[in-house]
Design a protein around this nucleic acid. Structure first.
Lengths: 226, 226
DNA sequence: CCTCAAACTGAAGCATCCTTCATATCTTGA
DNA sequence: TCAAGATATGAAGGATGCTTCAGTTTGAGG
């Protein structure tokens, strides 16, 4: 369901027997474990294999090289994340922009916060080679999902939805990332979460086109026009 | 002028003769060059030394190991960046919040955009070991600078300035980073820049305390109260 | 001009790490 | 039960990188 991996880092083969499936799952899990325990620098084929309880050779039956493993891991993570956001957006079609923003931010936030260590580890690992296609595809999917949602808002229409949408996503993703990067403790992190919602709502209020009656912000605020 | 580097990655010695200064500068420049040309993965002591036109041994006279070099590079970069923002903030004391936001965002944005390749390379390199203290110190400095600025605003007072300030900085930094990460082409990047300013202004409008007279947003918008 | 500390050199030691492949074991299906 | 394909093993080859140090060159001060 995700994108098409560049040829050079496609998995070598898919598991056909039950034990092989177990093995591959163990390898993924081990990769995360090693990432958590030792950091991206010490993510070593040997270490992953050891932790997964298999031999190095086994890994190379499924992944042509280390980067392919890494790529597959991130692909899976981003795919799950994108699905969560997509279905959350879907569910809010026709709602108010306030609710949309709240759901969007909170869904993304919770998904990232569910396993903070994993999130942090992956953020730090995204540096590795060639996952730019992954990020692009992820961004494209969410762009589409949120744009469709906002276009369906019951209480607002936007002149330049693409830009508004892009700005929103960029700032939400960036803010969440910043919270992880600075390792903000919980009272502050929650406060930022709340204020991020406020910020986005205020932004949408400011850029939405005035509804049919009752001017939005500039001309004659709440007197019937003229 | 920056923080105190952890002992294990302090420079070994400072240049005492002119040629040594030249050497150290060349090493820094070469580090950036290699980062740009080959990426953080291929940043190798040998490669840096070669590009700098010195031998590996020379590098080790000044830096106890690779990470120390890296650390010093980032330290310098963040220091310059922090200074720019600090002085920009200083200059806006007493101004309106709109102007403050505009100056803050634009200053940061321009500083990052000045040499986009370098920015991108450094963003990608910040993964390396132990520069968390650097980030913390950088955040602390800017936090202080912008908080002081906003506290002096001529047209607004905030109930919870620390949170407002933290949210602003986190989202601004994060958004800019996101623009680089997604490698947004210029029309879109500029649009996000503009909208980021709008967003921050709308946010501050929404959270500022109502001025002495003429209620802010909730009660009786522009009729003399009561 | 001379001396000594500062600066520089770069081959080599040491430590990892990635990846392969010949071999062994397991599972399935007939 | 047995053959054949699937899966697993792990020692070893090959590559690269970090760091040291014994020795050389350079520059500053007397």
């Amino acid at each position: 369901m995700a994108s098409n991996p560049p040829a050079h880092l496609k998995p070598r083969k898919k598991p056909r027997q039950a034990r092989a499936t177990v093995t591959v799952d163990a390898i993924f899990e081990a990769t995360i474990q090693v990432l958590l325990a030792d950091g991206p620098q010490r993510l070593t084929t040997t270490r992953v294999a050891e932790r997964a309880g298999v031999s190095v050779g086994t890994m190379y039956q499924y992944f042509p090289h280390k980067h392919a493993l890494f790529y597959a891991l991130n692909e899976h993570y981003l795919d799950v994340l994108a699905q969560k956001v997509e279905s959350a957006c879907q569910a809010q079609h026709g709602a108010s922009i306030n609710r949309m923003i709240d759901v969007l931010v909170t869904t993304y936030w919770n998904a990232k916060t569910e396993r903070p260590e994993v999130t942090r580890a992956l953020y730090r690992s995204v540096v590795e080679l060639d996952n730019e296609p992954l990020i692009k595809e992820f961004a494209r999917r969410l762009d589409a999902a949120t744009a469709a949602m906002f276009a369906s808002a019951s209480d607002a229409v936007f002149a330049d939805l693409p830009t508004v949408n892009l700005t929103l996503l960029t700032s939400i993703f960036g803010t969440v990332r910043g919270v992880f990067e600075r390792n903000l403790p919980d009272p502050e992190a929650s406060a930022v979460h709340r204020h991020l919602v406020l910020m986005c709502i205020a932004y949408l209020e400011a850029v939405k086109l005035p509804p049919r009656r009752a001017g939005g912000y500039d001309p004659a605020p709440r007197a019937s026009s003229h």
